[in-house]
Design a protein around this nucleic acid. Structure first.
Lengths: 232, 232
DNA sequence: GGATATATCAATCTAAAGATGTAAGACAAA
DNA sequence: TTTGTCTTACATCTTTAGATTGATATATCC
């Protein structure tokens, strides 16, 4: 399987020596992957990653000394195109979310069948991102929960809906930091007209100045259609 | 299946009448679900949702008249505990992301086998969130990508790091829509001092006015470790 | 046809924001 | 001690922002 190119090389990082040995045996005996290194230390693991450039790292995320997530971040920063799969004893939604956020390509529970781990490695080796169905569900519960508050706030009444098309255009330019003159220039209308629109926007959004208008817009789904960030 | 309680009731919304008929037949003949309504109009669909309180809605997200995502948002706002599964012709990552963000409990491609749709409905009816493995992978590529830029952007040079502690306080109040007087009052300093700080902030962030300063702050991780929103 | 909503523009005025220069006290590092 | 940064503060001035009133043209809706 995928042996036509070359065997994918795997590095194992797990502070539990027993589990480490077990996984190594599993991979060596029941898969096409080559284990190029094993370690119980996250820090050593990072160095081994630099040294051997494995294709895949299986990383335990529950380690005392150094947090597995931290180790993932450090390895990701190296930008070595190493694909990391998390091994974890817990299906904690927050943990899954953070792992995927910082770039893990997979997340498998230690309690899952060994076939599942091999399958995850196959998928990840093929360039995909793999999360077991059950964990996917947990991830999305957490993911959607982080937005629900926002939705509720704007669910009450989104004043943005009262804006006319033109006013939305003006507001959009406001949310890009334009002043009256710049907006007038971009919309090919006079500055006084822009002032009229802006004043109407203030009335409708019930704010006093452009900064508040911009903040209202950004906090109430005035989609600049690009993402903003989520804290780790 | 799950018939021990009662048959889950399903509402179908799809502007393609042919596809609508096909799905209805599929569900009626090959599943335990009861179709309580079908419509080709998103707006009518919203009203039917209010009227019938179905357990599940299958929603086409590629409709002309009204955007399917918009319809989902409106239904979610009603807070009727209706679980919505997206039906789509496209495995567009952005579309999947936005759908899941606003609360869809599943996302299935029209090209997928009918068994997959039934399976998705079973999972969703059981309270889970379901995304086919292939789409999960696409979702996470998009998801992780949305953070990579940030990391890089803020890695280049984040001008926010040049701010002093006091300037950060002032900027924080700026990002809450305060004017000079309000900031002076909250920090127990004079208005002229606030002006000094604000001017220094402008210099350091290389912007011309407070709106631009606020936008810079929000776009460069001035979000104080709480989740911020992602635009739909 | 008349009511209503929208988009355009102008004049005027007040308040707020922003630019610039100066400076004193606190405090920490060299 | 000196140097430097930070915080505070004031004066002055120009520019921009915002409020208000009024007016015209163009649609759309009933």
């Amino acid at each position: 399987m995928r042996d036509f190119k070359r065997r994918s090389r795997v590095l194992l990082i797990d502070d539990n020596a027993d589990h480490l040995r077990g996984v190594k045996e599993l991979i060596t005996l029941e898969s096409c992957y080559e284990v190029v290194g094993t370690t119980t230390s996250a820090n050593i693991g990072i160095n081994l990653a630099k040294k051997y450039h494995p294709d895949i790292i299986l990383m335990d995320v529950n380690m005392p000394e150094k947090d597995g997530l931290q180790a993932i971040q450090e390895i990701e920063k190296l930008d070595l195109d190493i694909r990391i799969i998390c091994l974890s004893g817990y299906d904690d939604a927050d943990l899954i979310f953070r792992a995927m956020k910082i770039g893990a390509k997979g997340y498998v529970l230690k309690t899952m069948a060994s076939a599942q781990l091999i399958y995850a490695m196959d998928e990840v080796a093929a360039g995909k991102i793999y999360l077991p169905t059950a964990l996917t569900s947990r991830f999305f519960e957490y993911f959607q929960n982080s937005f629900r508050e926002d939705t509720k706030a704007s669910a009450e009444e989104n004043l943005l809906t009262y804006l006319t098309a033109r006013e939305e255009e003006v507001l959009d330019l406001l949310t890009q930091g334009n002043n009256y003159k710049a907006i007038a220039g971009k919309l090919f209308i006079s500055e006084t007209t822009v002032k009229t629109h802006v004043n109407n926007i203030f009335q409708k959004l019930q704010v006093n100045d452009r900064t508040q208008a911009v903040l209202y817009a950004l906090n109430n789904g005035f989609a600049n259609r690009r993402l903003s960030k989520i804290a780790v």
